[in-house]
């Protein structure tokens, strides 16, 4: 009996642990739910689309599907936006869509326990806390956990039909 319940307990805590992909934007570290990530690729061959917000870099061909590319660095008003060797595109699946986001680099995959995830405080205009699922504390590091679903389908991203003015 006890063995069984222990196993169940273990499974439960296991289930609550979540894995995140950690990426950097400038000096800051952000993380998104790994289950949303489809793949990581280099930044190349993006076709510009006119009359769109600046952070929408355009569209690219991902094995036959046309995928929009968003530069989160521009969206978050980072000072330095350059396209170098480290610059990568994280291809994510949100709301049945495929979207690529440009980041400065991908560092690692982290498992966070529920205890390590702190609620996000109310702050910033640039990144409303609506789009955060919390802050991850990891020894001396702090990860900003981005709710990528909410962020990419939000009105201000103008990625999805009918949500933008």
């Amino acid at each position: 009996m006890s063995r069984l319940s222990k196993d169940a307990e273990f499974a439960a805590s296991e289930a609550q642990n979540r894995e995140f992909l950690v990426f950097s934007l400038g000096e800051e570290e952000y993380a998104i739910d790994i289950l949303k990530v489809q793949e990581i690729r280099g930044y190349e061959n993006v076709t510009r689309i006119a009359n769109t917000p600046e952070f929408i870099k355009g569209v690219t061909n991902l094995r036959g599907i046309i995928v929009p590319i968003v530069d989160l660095r521009i969206k978050f008003h980072l000072d330095k936006v350059e396209y170098a060797g480290q610059t990568v595109v994280i291809v994510v699946n949100v709301a049945d869509r495929v979207v690529g986001i440009v980041v400065d680099g991908v560092s690692d995959v982290m498992t966070l326990t529920p205890e390590q995830i702190k609620p996000a405080p109310e702050f910033g205009v640039t990144l409303s806390s609506d789009f955060l699922s919390g802050l991850g504390s990891l020894e001396d590091r702090m990860l900003v956990l981005v709710d990528i679903d909410k962020l990419l389908t939000s009105e201000e991203m103008a990625l999805v039909e009918g949500t933008s003015a």
């Binding site: 689309i49 006119a50 009359n51 599907i65 046309i66 995928v67 039909e161 933008s164």
Partner: peptide, 8 residues
């Protein structure tokens, strides 16, 4: 274009 993006 609308599959993953929107009407332009």
């Amino acid at each position: 274009l609308e599959t993953h993006y929107r009407k332009v």
